[in-house]
Design a protein around this nucleic acid. Sequence first.
DNA 1: GATGAATGAGAGTTCATTCAT
DNA 2: AATGAATGAACTCTCATTCAT
Lengths: 184, 184, 184, 184
Amino acid sequence: MTTGAGRVNRGPAAASDNRQAILRAARAVMAERGYRVPLSAIAREAGVGQGVLYRHFPTRLDLAFAVFEENVAELEAAVAPADGEALGRLWDRLVQQAMETTAFVEMVVDARRNLPEYDGGDRLLALVERALPAAQQAGRVEHSLTASDVVLAWRMVFGVVVTAPDPDSVRAAVQRARSLLPLP
Amino acid sequence: MTTGAGRVNRGPAAASDNRQAILRAARAVMAERGYRVPLSAIAREAGVGQGVLYRHFPTRLDLAFAVFEENVAELEAAVAPADGEALGRLWDRLVQQAMETTAFVEMVVDARRNLPEYDGGDRLLALVERALPAAQQAGRVEHSLTASDVVLAWRMVFGVVVTAPDPDSVRAAVQRARSLLPLP
Amino acid sequence: MTTGAGRVNRGPAAASDNRQAILRAARAVMAERGYRVPLSAIAREAGVGQGVLYRHFPTRLDLAFAVFEENVAELEAAVAPADGEALGRLWDRLVQQAMETTAFVEMVVDARRNLPEYDGGDRLLALVERALPAAQQAGRVEHSLTASDVVLAWRMVFGVVVTAPDPDSVRAAVQRARSLLPLP
Amino acid sequence: MTTGAGRVNRGPAAASDNRQAILRAARAVMAERGYRVPLSAIAREAGVGQGVLYRHFPTRLDLAFAVFEENVAELEAAVAPADGEALGRLWDRLVQQAMETTAFVEMVVDARRNLPEYDGGDRLLALVERALPAAQQAGRVEHSLTASDVVLAWRMVFGVVVTAPDPDSVRAAVQRARSLLPLP
DNA sequence: GATGAATGAGAGTTCATTCAT
DNA sequence: AATGAATGAACTCTCATTCAT
């Protein structure tokens, strides 16, 4: 019946900090223990109560999407200077993120089952479409390559990451996978 | 207080049949409801008690591996005539299985976390090594392609399957993915 | 970090308005969703923060009692002209209130468990005692009927209301129940 | 991960006993602490695990209905000899049950909200219809009284029970309420 | 050897209460 | 004085695992 034993109530001012802390914790804990990690573990790692986690992110998917949105923001920065190298930078970041956020694939599987209407990839597709033409004019990639192909290649890299027998083998496998693909 | 209610106790003779029924059920139920489906649902679908399921497959992984082994058996048949077409047949079956057994990726993730020592891909690698040289001599694939590359390509196809926004889009996406890869 | 986001802080002047708004909201929300509705829902409906609700009514019972007190005030108006019709008006209002405030019974149950010393019915009893003699002299009800009996009859009507299979059947059932009772 | 520390697994043979124990516990604990008592408290009182409770009665309503069904069985015994006293015995048992099973009203409220299609009272109505004619021919009750009226009277008695200020006052209040009603 | 009910730890969710702003 | 986010205990429900029959 009584409330807060340990933690102090920092009031509404803590909201923004808490949100950040939760996202950071989710990223770390999901990376280590997988997408299905107990939400209570994320709350503990973030240093917040379970109710706060629930208030900010009502479902596990909401939380995972928020992590994903952070990734997208980073990608947007990568294509900001719309030069011939933008696609290369984008592709680098995409591959990097795939290696960091393994939990992402499990999230996509979950989303497919529970949120069929989620657009998800559309934002990414738009980013690629912004960067692709310049890269083609600069001769960095084939003219026959479409934006969808780039997204598809990204999904293929994910396959390599999640099926890796151990974390140490990921980097080399992804490297080799990139060499099999018609992308830089 | 008689023994069973509905089912008769068929004794040891049922063991083999039960094993088959469980595998069939696991394949079907995992395909529909995902790798994390309750084991009781698989037992129900197989028409056996939970104890039997447990006797044959002590852990979820044991069950999933057994399904995987069945797949491998099918692949062995594909490379049996060791001609120049063997690799093509193998690759076809691999892609087909990837599309059918989506739950496989979740299984691999689970295995990585809980059974680090599992060899998994070695059997597959051996199969590819058996079929690759003939294919290269027949000019079907580049000489620079290694057996590891084929396994890697298979992992990439898995990425496409599990990240598909909806089941209907899988076939076309996989088709396109194959066209990006240096395999038939 | 300004004080409030949307609402302005109207200061002490708002206290009375808030109290009224909360009572109105409690009546409406409890009628629709039951006595056990989350207090946050009442605060939201009233357009106040949860802290204000808490300040005015520290417990759910305090709030429910206040609603009940409003009912009593209405009843007092009914017996104000202490004529032979006063009991009839009072009884009419009582039955009406029973039909409107179904949540009341759950409140009484709650009160019994958590506030054994609450007098509750005494105020009502006093009201009836004020109106009963004139009604008996006017021949409206039997002389053998006591004030306690009237309160008891009211409790019986409550039983009809809360056990009604559906809201639409309440009116007719109460009508019939009244006809079984020695009251107008 | 490990299972049962204290309790032993008595196997399927315990099923029937457990069901009885749960019903007995539900009746006792709900009587004491109300319909909304934690299900875990009922399981503890019954000496079973929470899963067992859940297996036998998936929802709180299922459990409460089962208790109610036991009551109905008792009522059926009361009207078994279809003589002129059957209605009297039935009415006695009904009033008695109302006093014992206060939680019933909260159950009805719950059922109304969550199971609108539940027939509930129909079984009782049928019982009354079986016993009423003989009672009327024996001059025990008015001919104008219908079976619905008896059920209605029962609902009125419930109102008295649940609104009683304290348990000790229930008996006298019900006694008085019966005297206000045109039933024995 | 098969059955399927029992077990109970733990996950997810809710919400009364507090309190910094 | 008002706000509404934070807190975390408590509750319900699930399901892997065991084991009497």
